[in-house]
Simulated scan of single mutants.
Amino acid sequence: MKDKRDGKKYIYVFFLILSLGIIFITGCSKDEKSKEAKLALIKTTNPHPAVLHETKKEFQFSEELHKYVLSFPEIYDAAIIAGKKNILVAYKVKHLHRFRMKKIEKELKKKLEKKYPHHTFVVSSDYKIFIEAVELNEKLKDPNYSREKAKKRFKKILKLQKEQT
């Protein structure tokens, strides 16, 4: 009878050490995501559009594009990054419309290409892409963050989007 209790003690100690190890590892992991990027999944962020090639015309276009994307009744949050050739439009769909996400994505891309025929759009409803876009947008606010780094990061986000499709 004493042997069974000793065995249970070892099992309890093992699980205690295992759970403390998991807590330690997750608590000490270095997470470089910005505060806004972390909250992007929980709440509406509606970040201002980011423009990698800063001109007044590009900023005005990006603001107009942001308002246009948010005018869709199914969409409640959007992050836009305008590059030299491509414009990334990452958005979040209202919960009741999640079953139609692919249809909404096709419809949005079609309407954007029709309204703005001189631009190339990369449209995504994927949360990972949305968070990456918000994070890049936050980094662009830092004056020490170089445009070259931003352009490389933008290319990585576009590549990630292409891999997911």
Rank of each mutant, 00 (worst) to 15 (best):
M1I: 08
K2A: 11
K4Y: 15
R5E: 13
D6Y: 08
F14H: 11
F15M: 14
L16V: 09
L16S: 07
I17E: 05
L18G: 11
S19V: 11
G21T: 02
G21K: 01
I22T: 08
F24M: 08
I25Y: 15
G27Y: 08
K30A: 05
K30S: 07
D31M: 06
K33T: 09
S34V: 00
A37Q: 00
K38N: 05
A40R: 00
A40W: 01
T45W: 01
T45G: 04
N46D: 14
H53Q: 11
E54L: 02
F59V: 08
F61N: 09
F61M: 05
E63L: 13
L65M: 09
H66K: 15
K67T: 14
K67G: 07
K67Q: 14
V69H: 05
V69Y: 10
L70R: 11
S71T: 05
S71R: 04
F72I: 10
F72D: 12
Y76R: 06
Y76V: 03
D77I: 06
A78N: 02
I80Q: 02
A82G: 12
G83M: 04
G83Q: 03
K84I: 04
K85P: 01
I87E: 03
L88G: 01
V89K: 01
A90L: 00
Y91T: 03
Y91E: 07
H95G: 12
L96M: 08
F99N: 06
R100H: 12
R100V: 03
M101Q: 15
M101E: 15
M101D: 14
K103Y: 13
L108F: 12
L108D: 05
K109W: 08
K109C: 03
K110I: 06
K110N: 14
K111C: 03
K111P: 02
K114A: 06
K115V: 04
Y116N: 07
Y116C: 06
H118V: 11
T120A: 13
F121S: 15
V122I: 14
V123H: 09
S124N: 07
S125W: 10
S125A: 14
D126I: 08
I131N: 03
A133Y: 07
K139H: 08
L140N: 00
L140M: 09
D142E: 12
N144G: 06
N144P: 00
E148C: 01
K149R: 09
K151R: 11
K152R: 13
F154W: 12
K155N: 15
K156E: 15
I157N: 02
I157W: 05
L160K: 12
Q161N: 12
Q161G: 05
K162L: 06
E163Y: 11
